[in-house]
Design a protein around this nucleic acid. Sequence first.
DNA 1: CAGACGTACTACGACAGGCGAAGTACGACA
DNA 2: TGTCGTACTTCGCCTGTCGTAGTACGTCTG
Lengths: 108, 108
Amino acid sequence: MISSDIIRGYNDTIILFLLLEKPSYGYEISRQIRQISEEKYVIKETTLYSAFTRMEKNGYIESFYQDDIDSGGKRRTYYRITEAGRAYYREKCEEWNLTQDVIARFIR
Amino acid sequence: MISSDIIRGYNDTIILFLLLEKPSYGYEISRQIRQISEEKYVIKETTLYSAFTRMEKNGYIESFYQDDIDSGGKRRTYYRITEAGRAYYREKCEEWNLTQDVIARFIR
DNA sequence: CAGACGTACTACGACAGGCGAAGTACGACA
DNA sequence: TGTCGTACTTCGCCTGTCGTAGTACGTCTG
């Protein structure tokens, strides 16, 4: 539906948006993206998990483990947004507004 | 100003937009992008010329040579948009509208 | 008259992000 | 018993962008 080349580099922003509210984990984030976008964007598993790794390395998110009761005691990797992550998200939002405006000039 | 990751894969669309009007060549297109975007987006030469190569391979544009008087008789490589190119451009515009709408849901 | 600047490219190689394919593990449900 | 859903991990390919560099020619400037 949506080509990956446009969203490229914006996946991080999308993930951070969902983490603003509360810490979350891969599968839940994946589901939320699908739901919020009304199935128009379904993030690939590999894309999602590699984004986690990258963003943790960049200090935008922090991981922790939690054994949840509702998942039958299975261990999930949760991620929590950091202050740096929030700042990065804000920057990206501004950049998005700018980009959107510029690209619109080339669209009919 | 604008990160290349967002515009990635959208450069083709931007170039095709400029070719809708009339055939053109690298330097002119580069100048127009800078001008229309009000310096907010300056396409890199390598990006531009590799986009030409790719799009010609895909049949979206056709090249031809022209010795222009105003360039001191220097040979320029002009590009002309094809029917397939126009169709591709139209598709991309629709995709853009969709993507824009989806990403907006993750932006504050 | 030399050198810088603008035009108009081409070639090469690096890099990053996304993605396909495959595999693992476990619980629930039929 | 087997499939489905959850929850990941690993590996390696592909594509588009970009940095660096080089070529060539004409004009303009000190």
